[in-house]
Design a binder for these strands. Structure first.
Lengths: 212, 212, 212, 212
DNA sequence: CGGTAATCGAGACGGTACGTCTAGTCTTAAA
DNA sequence: TTTAAGACTAGACGTACCGTCTCGATTACCG
């Protein structure tokens, strides 16, 4: 998740100070004015840095913001709470937390829009953010299966969407303030939805009688 | 949902032709070049219309796109399929459909980003798009309760997020192609999460103590 | 100098009130904001009149201003003061006066610029403003010749330029404030320049006491 | 007279090529379409330059045209012809020449109009164009006095107006084509107006006490 | 130690879109 | 046919960024 371009060994080395100042300035400006109103010129000025120093590190504004605002795979591995529901709750709270920092809150929608047109950034976003969470989902599902809570592991992507999606929708589509226990409630619903998969143990007739 | 400004009765009336041409041009360009690369100048030119005619109707690019790309409350009331799961499936397929038109697919992320900084548009978005779907959710939940499928109605916003969120996440965050039965599968999961599933699963561990 | 377009006899007759309000509003705005910042919309609004009513009377902004700001041939015929120098002084003071009203002062440079590109208006300007003054010059020269002050009449256009030019230059090129006796001083110089052409006129009367 | 902004020593220096291309394009377009129809966008396009490069150098269209069209103080010092009349003729021909280039002819009236509302440009116009010519007038008057052609030096501004004014009026107010010897004729008249003509006219009364 | 090479801040470069403004024309309903 | 009101096309205005490039001045490593 560090900067980007191939760092040659020859010539004057990059200054760490510049990297830090850029990250800092980007985060500040994101929180202050939001993604759309954030300009590379503004970031460079705030960081006391030339524009070239920015573009030497990031190919575009989207990359700059992405690298500065999105946390990397620095989360601890998912804690084992003993139940699927508990594991999912921990994960959901983590996702919720990373979506509600002042920085993320401003950056996410704009970043998403840029992703739509910059496949390269989109790929990195997948690899850094999405993929990493999905691995955690897989781990959790695996555990649940070995506990006997699940008969067969569902598609991890679907489960991921089942947690991430409603959180995102709540915050950015419905634009509701995040309730304290939102993550837990969604984890609860998700666990319930995944519950015993397939036709309730052998013998249970056609899926028709869903009634009650 | 129509254009915007108070339609005065005096003076030359707005030309319908212009409204139509603008909507048409906007949709075409959205599908062709996407939201970011769409320019008001381009839309006006394609529509054979002066820029002033655009800004007389829409305060910004976001308003223009919103009004042109987002379907209004022109959906039929939710069909009663006889089961909660069925009703949700119909709704989910509808949402999925409206998110996967060539126009929406391009417009949604950009629109979302603009929403973040333009409260006025955000309000309209809520009223037009979100609110209307939420009413449908309420209707469906009401029906389910009168059928006895649900004991108590959950928060419609939460249920809405439970359907809309995963669909959105699947398409725009995970960037996966929409499977044919995606809506149905999510409706299935949602129904399962909301109510007791079929015959209570025999003995599947501590599903009892559900929070809240 | 009245308005312009062919006034049909059929249909509703034009309202005098509109003509007056337009003239009035144009003069006010000229004095307030100057020629460049004066807009037809502004004039119409100030006059409480529709834009169409303006363009029904004047083909362009230049025509509007020209008709509203430039005095017509409403000057009395040049008074005979008894000397060429005196006659020229009266004329020069008249020209100076017409160039230094608040309205003219603002209108003249802008009008001049538009004249450069609108031959039609330029023609009317010649006919209304220039020609009329030139006739006065001719009259004055004729008188001087019959008095014996001049041997032969010089080109009236040149004499006109000799009076009008320096006044214009003083005001609009050098941008100096008009001295009280500027007209008189220039008339003095002009009379002197025209004076006895070639060898001093044989024995001609009272050219003596030119002093003040 | 050069461009404008303080030329900082830091950062990338301005490109000479851009300055030249802008001046060139402005002059071409002035001659082709005139002042009113000249647009900054057009100039930039013709010069193969971004609009920003123009506005980095000139605050407005008026400044651009002024800097491109008006000759600087690059005239040689006024040649001494031996007589006041001769000196004035040289000067008048020079002024006439500078007012009748294709570029000036188109630029002057428009520039004059813009001067009326932009005091900053007006000031520069004074300093560059007017003042410089006035110094030449002073030189000429001084010479004439030391020759004994003039008893006392009149106001140089008035003399300047006496030459420049009629030329301007002839060209832009009366809109007459410039005669070959126009400058000389005006210089003749001016010399006559200023001083005793030729051999002091025998006995023509008290021409001595000339006013002021 | 002197050269090579990449860095630094600064800011100009070509492009492009923005949202505003005005000109002059056209269209409505009412008079 | 006029009126007031205001929509219409067309296009310039001056501002703001983007991402690239260029300047002179550092600052490391390499030979």
């Amino acid at each position: 998740l560090s900067a980007s371009a191939a760092t040659s060994l020859r010539g004057r080395p990059r200054e760490r100070r510049v990297d830090d100042a850029l990250r800092q300035a980007t985060r500040e400006l994101l929180a202050e004015v939001g993604y759309a109103a954030l300009s590379v010129e503004g970031v460079a000025a705030r960081a006391g840095v030339g524009k070239a120093a920015v573009y030497r590190r990031f190919r575009s504004k989207a990359e700059l913001v992405f690298a500065s605002a999105v946390h990397g795979p620095d989360l601890p591995p998912p804690r084992d709470t003993g139940t699927l529901r508990g594991d999912l709750a921990v994960l959901a709270e983590g996702i919720l937390g990373s979506l509600t920092t002042p920085v993320s809150a401003e950056a996410v929608p704009g970043l998403l829009a840029d992703l739509a047109k910059q496949p390269e950034i989109a790929r990195r976003f997948q690899a850094t953010f999405i993929q990493h969470e999905q691995v955690r989902v897989e781990t959790i599902l695996e555990r649940a299966r070995s506990r006997g809570e699940l008969r067969e592991s569902p598609d991890p992507a679907l489960v991921h969407a089942l947690l991430l999606g409603p959180l995102f929708a709540w915050l950015f589509l419905l634009r509701r303030p995040p309730a304290r226990d939102l993550g837990e409630r969604l984890a609860d619903l998700a666990a319930r939805a995944l519950g015993p998969v397939g036709p309730p143990p052998p013998r249970t007739g056609p899926r028709t009688a869903k009634k009650r």
